[in-house]
């Protein structure tokens, strides 16, 4: 819960910063975002889209984006956005992804100028793409510089803290009600890679990852550290997690024996897909490893936590 509040606070903050430093007249003002990462990035750049797609979890919109997106129209699902609704909204910019919307691209372009990212998880691409289309290049490069500085700081601190044990091999596991997925690439994978984590040997040849349906396959999950993504309101998923984690094979995993299994927030680790989610994921990593955050970020968190008026932070 606290995490949600923090996330929301930071989203609002990023919004406020971007809003305040806005000087040039905004070119396209009516923007529709058709995937999660685009919505996140638009908010990070201080844009309030006029239309967004439903979120995957915490429906209809992730808690961390809700404050910035009150009264914004929803245009259906990311996989099948309602074209007519989009047309009625008369946007002047549509942000889509080739990967999801290749089939509807001609229709989207007929509705409004459309920019597309090749996939839905490349948060840098999404951010720069939206920034370029809306004349917010300065804000985007500021956000990315801040991100790069945080990444550099994390890499330095964790290498110092872990010593010989660094780089760690990491597994990101998502529990579903009847199977388990392990992800190697995608949003979390690319960020962990950027932070210097390595992949377990068993997974290096596995493309996007694997689906495991039997507890027999638990040894494939072996890594120095495991991050587990659960869905908070789903009892079946919690049950499956209990079932797997009580299995003798699970107890033999080195991450389990060294008590390095952490539960992670699926929204920031997987669903959000934008720079705000990436920063939230990095926040989580800082706190899991007990590292101290560089000042500005920390100040923001401290202020938000004591619920001092957010705009001052």
């Amino acid at each position: 819960m606290l995490r949600c509040v923090l996330l929301a606070a930071c989203a609002t903050l990023a919004y406020a910063i971007a809003e305040a430093s806005e000087e040039q007249p905004t070119t396209p003002a009516r923007i529709v975002t058709l995937y999660q990462g685009a919505t996140d990035s638009a908010v990070a750049l201080g844009i309030t889209p006029i239309g967004v797609v439903d979120s995957w979890l915490e429906k209809p919109m992730y808690h961390y984006l809700r404050d910035a997106l009150t009264n914004v129209e929803h245009v259906g699902l990311e996989t099948q956005p309602n074209l007519e609704k989009i047309a009625w909204l008369a946007p002047d910019l549509v942000v889509a992804s080739d990967f999801r919307h290749a089939r509807v691209a001609p229709l989207l372009s007929a509705i409004a100028t459309t920019v597309t990212a090749p996939n839905v998880f490349g948060f840098r691409t999404t951010l720069t793409m939206i920034a370029n289309a809306t004349g917010r290049e300065a804000q985007a490069s500021e956000l990315l510089q801040r991100w790069d500085a945080r990444v550099a700081d994390f890499r330095q601190q964790i290498a110092a803290q872990m010593g010989n044990e660094w780089p760690q091999k990491v597994a990101v596991i998502r529990f579903k009600s009847d199977h388990v997925r392990i992800y190697t690439s995608g949003f979390a994978g690319s960020i962990l890679d950027e932070l210097g984590f390595e992949q377990p040997d068993t997974l290096q040849t596995q493309g996007w990852g694997m689906k495991l349906s039997s507890t027999e396959n638990i040894p494939a999950l072996d890594a120095d550290v495991i991050f587990v993504l659960l869905e908070p309101d789903d009892a079946a998923i919690a049950n499956n997690y209990r079932h797997w984690s009580s299995h003798p094979l699970w107890q033999q995993l080195s991450a389990v024996q060294n008590q390095r299994v952490y539960e992670a927030e699926p929204v920031s680790w997987m669903m959000g897909g934008g720079i705000l989610a990436a920063n939230a994921m990095l926040d989580e990593l800082y706190s899991h490893y007990g590292l101290t955050q560089p000042l500005p970020r920390q100040a923001c968190r401290a202020l938000a936590a004591t619920s001092v008026e957010q705009t001052t932070c």
């Binding site: 996989t79 099948q80 089939r103 509807v104 229709l107 839905v120 493309g207 996007w208 990852g209 689906k211």
Partner: peptide
């Protein structure tokens, strides 16, 4: 569907259900 990644699987599911979405 089981061996392909989530996103391709999702497209496949929609396709298998049958849809006239985005007909041109």
């Amino acid at each position: 569907i089981v061996i392909s990644d989530d996103a391709a699987a999702m497209t496949a599911y929609v396709w298998l259900t049958g849809s006239l979405y985005a007909a041109q």
